[in-house]
């Protein structure tokens, strides 16, 4: 009888540990990019970003489909996919990285934490190491990760024809906003 209780305790403990070690997954994160020039402001939104954050190890991952970016103008979206991002050849962009100051973030306690993230960003088939600050907001039923970073199309071999050079910024602002539901 006692043995049985101990067994149950172990099963329960295993269960409890499993829950705390659970990865946070989001399938509808939001990534927006914004290009500002005196001639034109261009904005596109992607609401189908998949992200996995592991509170135990601090590993963090984002994957998105280039074709899921939505523009205000249809032609812009076509040019973006066909001419600049070549999304038939490179359908996805991704980031795989690490929260470097994990010890400063308490995923069990509500609050705003600043995170230092570094890792590999892959766009248009080119991978670059990046470093970026971010914010992690822990609340009762969810965790939200946000960050703003600057991406240079040039770095990822994205060539912009001279005709439209004036309309597309050399530095594109990328805003990340992902909410993970706690289970």
């Amino acid at each position: 009888m006692k043995n049985k209780n101990i067994l149950f305790l172990f099963i329960f403990l295993g269960f409890a540990m499993n829950i705390s070690a659970q990865k946070l997954i989001s399938k509808n994160g939001h990534i927006r990019f914004y290009s500002h020039t005196p001639v034109e402001d261009i904005e596109a939104n992607n609401f189908q970003v998949v992200s996995i954050l592991d509170p135990e190890t601090g590993s963090v991952q984002f994957t998105l489909l280039i074709k899921s970016f939505e523009f205000q103008k249809k032609l812009m979206q076509e040019h973006f996919n066909e001419n600049y991002m070549e999304s038939d050849e490179y359908p996805k962009a991704s980031f795989t990285g690490q929260i470097n100051n994990l010890s400063e973030i308490n995923f069990e306690k509500d609050g705003n934490y600043s995170a230092k993230v570094s890792g590999d960003l892959t766009i248009h088939g080119v991978t670059k190491k990046i470093n970026t600050p971010g914010t992690i907001i822990v609340s009762k039923d969810k965790v939200t990760a946000t960050a703003v970073l600057i991406v240079l199309p040039e770095d990822y071999n994205i060539t912009i024809p001279d005709v439209v050079k004036e309309k597309i910024a050399k530095e594109v602002e990328v805003t990340i906003d992902v909410s993970y539901n706690k289970n």
Binding site: Q48, V50, T63, L64, S68
Partner: peptide, 12 residues
């Protein structure tokens, strides 16, 4: 159809 991540994605 815009592609496949963990699921197939349909937009608009």
């Amino acid at each position: 159809c815009t592609g496949y991540l963990l699921d197939v994605v349909l937009s608009k």
